[in-house]
Computed example of a mutant assay.
Amino acid sequence: MKKRILWILLDLVFLTVFNTVFFVAGGTDHNLSVWISYGFIHLSYLLLIITPFLIRQSSSAAVFGFSLYSISSAYFMVEFIVGVIFCLINMESYKPALIVQVIIAGFYAIMLLSHMIANENTADSVERHEMELRYVKDCSARILPLVDMISDKKTKKKVETVYDMIHGSPVKSNHSVRQIELDVMDQIDALEAAVNSADNDKIASTCNKITRLADERNRQLKYNN
Rank of each mutant, 00 (worst) to 15 (best):
Y69G: 13
A123Q: 11
E92V: 10
K158M: 13
L88M: 12
A61E: 15
V162Q: 04
S60T: 07
A141S: 12
K153T: 12
V34R: 02
T122Q: 14
D152G: 02
R219H: 13
T122L: 14
I5H: 00
V100A: 10
S67P: 00
N121T: 09
M1F: 06
G27L: 07
R142W: 03
V177S: 02
L98M: 13
H167T: 03
E192D: 15
V13H: 04
Q220E: 13
N121I: 07
I99T: 12
L98Q: 05
A194L: 04
S67C: 00
D148V: 01
Y69N: 12
V24G: 03
S67I: 05
I85Q: 00
T28G: 15
G65Q: 04
R134G: 05
G65N: 04
K2P: 00
M165H: 09
D11C: 13
S37Y: 05
S114W: 06
S176L: 12
D148Q: 11
C139H: 03
R56M: 00
S67F: 04
K156I: 01
D189V: 08
I81K: 02
R4H: 09
P145N: 05
V78L: 13
N19G: 01
I117L: 15
C87A: 14
T161G: 15
I71M: 06
V162A: 10
L191N: 04
E130S: 07
S125C: 01
G168Q: 07
V63I: 11
L9C: 13
S44H: 04
K153Q: 15
V63S: 14
P52C: 07
M111A: 15
M1V: 08
